[in-house]
Design a protein around this nucleic acid. Sequence first.
DNA 1: CGGGCTCTTGAACTAGCTCAACCGGAGTGG
DNA 2: CCACTCCGGTTGAGCTAGTTCAAGAGCCCG
Lengths: 218, 218
Amino acid sequence: MLTQSAASSVNPYISFARRQRPVQAPSRPGIVMNFARSAEIFADGEASGHVYKVLSGVVRISKLLPDGRRQISAFHLPGDMFGFEAEAQHHFTAETVVASKVAAYKWSSLLANSEASAEVLNTLLQGLRITQEHLLRVGRKNALERVAAFLIEMGERGGGGDVVELSMPRHDIADYLGLTLETVSRMLAELKAKAAIRLKSARTVELIDRELLEAMAA
Amino acid sequence: MLTQSAASSVNPYISFARRQRPVQAPSRPGIVMNFARSAEIFADGEASGHVYKVLSGVVRISKLLPDGRRQISAFHLPGDMFGFEAEAQHHFTAETVVASKVAAYKWSSLLANSEASAEVLNTLLQGLRITQEHLLRVGRKNALERVAAFLIEMGERGGGGDVVELSMPRHDIADYLGLTLETVSRMLAELKAKAAIRLKSARTVELIDRELLEAMAA
DNA sequence: CGGGCTCTTGAACTAGCTCAACCGGAGTGG
DNA sequence: CCACTCCGGTTGAGCTAGTTCAAGAGCCCG
């Protein structure tokens, strides 16, 4: 079971994603829900109708290929909203990376409120821009540039301090950047060797030369 | 000048994109503009404030890296809208692929109209979903899968017939799929060898085995 | 103290890139 | 009407970045 075989090996996260879900369905605006780490909030294909806001923790948005290859399109941090759909079904999966608190809002009631719907519009515009920028990274940048850009991104979103807490495993970073976890690990080692970063632990990165890091992100 | 050198060679399209632009600025809703082939509609960094609808032709949306590497995030066909921005500046470039007719609308007046703004919301939701799906292709699919998926996509968007007119050069397809033009050409040759398609001309592809094509797109 | 995970590192392999030559259709001019 | 040229596309040969496969090393938690 642990000996994964070839390219068509099933992504281990499929089986890990737990169906732990709060009993109370989110019906009125702003229902708060607690999720354990690596829990599924909703899955690709499920009925949509609610949008969510991260209160604490980290949420990953992903799509799976039938053979298990996975692409993470975004990590959502506290304050971020996700789960918007034009149709009645979700077209991607949302799972927690770490234990997280999430507020659910009814999509229809959000649209009824003009102030909220203006905010939604803005969120969507930002989301589209960010996804297009990420597409450029994945489609045109090399492994070192992608990892450097990822660290800068997480640094900025995490408050701008020099110490960046990566709450996700290498596997998730790899699936976000379109790489393998081994390559992510090697690129981190290279950035460390070039004195751009220091690895306080596997998940705690200190950015010791932002300028160099930015130059490497291309 | 024609001997391009190495990975850092400047993208030829930078210099080709012509600044041919209609004199009349789009100020009232629905101003129709005509553009020659490979003309710039707006560039990354320019002031935004208008959104556009393709009336005829094809428009490509792209982002450039300083060294000339380019990622095309979308091709827009007649009926599609583009140019939405949350901020005062555009964050990507829009150029015609072939001679095109485009209608410009003032963003602010579109937002004022609630019916139009509901349509905008829907367009954005669709756009986000499509971009995420494209990210999965670029991040996780191999060259053959990407090219097969591209042909299926263009086939469906082009009306569903068996003969697909690709109005864009190989270079554009490559920059859309995150490949090189040589690889695109080789994958088309492979699909042809496997009898999934027939190349009536370089730009005219006949899909002779959609099922096989879909299987190859993974 | 032991059993899983996660992460790192090494070695070999390969998909796709790079570099280079050539091909063919669409003007263009003699 | 043919020769020439230009440009987009194809094809080949070799190379390399990143993957794959494999073996260990930490590390957290019971």
